Computed example of a mutant assay.
Amino acid sequence: EDMPHISHSWGSELRYDYWDGEEWHIETVDEEGRYPSSIAVNSSDFPCIAYAHTYGLKYAHWDGNQWNIDIICGGLVDADRALIIDSDDRPHISFQNNECLEYAYFDGIDWNIEVVDSNGDVGRYAAIGLDSRGNPHISYYDDHPNYHLKYAWYGPDNDITLLSFTADASKPSAVNLRWSISADEGDDILGFNLYRRELKEGAIHKLRIRPKDVGEAPVRENYNSPLQRDNLPEWHKVNSTTITGTNPYSYTDTGVAENTQYEYKLEAVMGGDSGETLGTTTVETGEPASFGIVRLYPNPTSDIVNCVLRVPEPCEVDIAIYDISGREVSEERFSVENAGKTEVFLDISGFVDGVYTITAYLNNECESRRIVVAK
């Protein structure tokens, strides 16, 4: 929507400022976030911020209702860090920690941290980008004693590019996997291997900030997230012989259980005993069509919002609207007669100008989007 978003320190606090088309709004994200930060927005136009506290690295993101804060790691994290959000809305962060350049990324399950460069006092003034494969590229400064500008990147040495990798649970006990690649004729690809692991519930320690009423301080609480855990299971090879064929490729895995979430890893088999991991994908067997908000329009609006929903079956959907303080200002239930896409209309003619969050609820699922009311 071409609206500016700013993160900055104010005393000992981390603050977030944004322009809604009419005026600036200022929020306190974390009372312990005084150091310089890096901000990006995801596909829902929600802000995501990487920053440091006294001893360590933090990541805050707005989910439509509240700020959620991850404590990624401890250490002597310097003021220089950079954040980018990939096409799957997953964060990637480069930062200096104890005079080393480190790289942190969220894989959808857990945070992963790697030391990129530890040769000298390295990692200052870092900037990060992602290539078409989602691999990180980082520019940074090598301070004392070398005083060099450096560039680090991650990726294979050959020219294999994974164009697509999908998993479809068309049957409760079978998963159809499809992938396509782009490779130079000189690449010595003998075939592919597939690996599978089951994603079970677990938890890691996180910090959540609940929305506050006007004039009240943020409320912090510890909670366990079912989407994250300390230890992931081992990978198990799916195919007994190397998968060959023509591009695009396919394979059906019949060794899965119903109503279970799996992650798959695709490996290219190269000459000799070498192999290269090309990518991963996830699927849940027996999963119905997904639920969510497809589109809100017009946005900004003054009187009516058209809300396009996607539902897996005939159902009743609750839609709530929250103002910028997190206070619910409207709630309505809609009966949907058919699965797929449907459109409902929300009357916001009585709302004052500002930014609002629309959240759709179906059973234990919900999705949020922001709208701007401007009259």
Rank of each mutant, 00 (worst) to 15 (best):
residue 285 T to E: 01
residue 100 C to Q: 10
residue 333 R to F: 01
residue 294 V to I: 13
residue 289 A to G: 15
residue 56 G to N: 07
residue 348 I to V: 07
residue 282 T to L: 10
residue 205 H to K: 13
residue 264 Y to S: 11
residue 59 Y to A: 11
residue 226 P to V: 03
residue 215 G to L: 04
residue 319 I to E: 14
residue 55 Y to C: 01
residue 9 S to R: 14
residue 154 Y to R: 13
residue 140 Y to Q: 04
residue 60 A to L: 03
residue 95 F to G: 01
residue 11 G to S: 13
residue 172 P to Q: 10
residue 35 Y to I: 11
residue 233 P to Y: 06
residue 76 L to P: 00
residue 76 L to T: 08
residue 330 S to G: 05
residue 70 D to F: 04
residue 237 K to F: 00
residue 175 V to L: 02
residue 93 I to M: 01
residue 234 E to F: 08
residue 91 P to H: 00
residue 257 A to R: 13
residue 298 P to M: 14
residue 174 A to Q: 12
residue 249 Y to K: 13
residue 233 P to R: 08
residue 288 P to I: 15
residue 122 V to S: 03
residue 17 D to F: 15
residue 145 P to S: 07
residue 95 F to I: 06
residue 146 N to C: 04
residue 320 A to D: 11
residue 265 K to F: 08
residue 275 G to T: 15
residue 113 I to Y: 03
residue 14 L to R: 13
residue 199 L to D: 06
residue 2 D to H: 00
residue 57 L to C: 00
residue 172 P to L: 11
residue 227 L to C: 01
residue 311 V to Y: 10
residue 184 D to I: 01
residue 367 E to G: 06
residue 303 D to Y: 02
residue 35 Y to P: 04
residue 276 E to I: 12
residue 64 G to M: 04
residue 125 Y to K: 02
residue 136 P to G: 06
residue 341 K to L: 12
residue 150 K to P: 00
residue 10 W to N: 15
residue 342 T to H: 07
residue 218 P to S: 09
residue 56 G to S: 01
residue 92 H to Y: 01
residue 304 I to M: 15
residue 351 F to P: 03
residue 157 D to I: 11
residue 297 Y to E: 13
residue 258 E to Y: 07
residue 237 K to H: 01
residue 59 Y to M: 08
residue 106 F to L: 05
residue 151 Y to F: 14
residue 375 K to L: 02
residue 187 D to T: 09
residue 97 N to D: 09
residue 322 Y to I: 11
residue 269 V to W: 00
residue 48 C to I: 07
residue 122 V to H: 03
residue 120 G to E: 03
residue 50 A to G: 11
residue 161 T to D: 12
residue 263 E to L: 10
residue 181 I to G: 06
residue 342 T to Y: 05
residue 4 P to K: 12
residue 358 I to M: 02
residue 205 H to G: 11
residue 79 A to S: 09
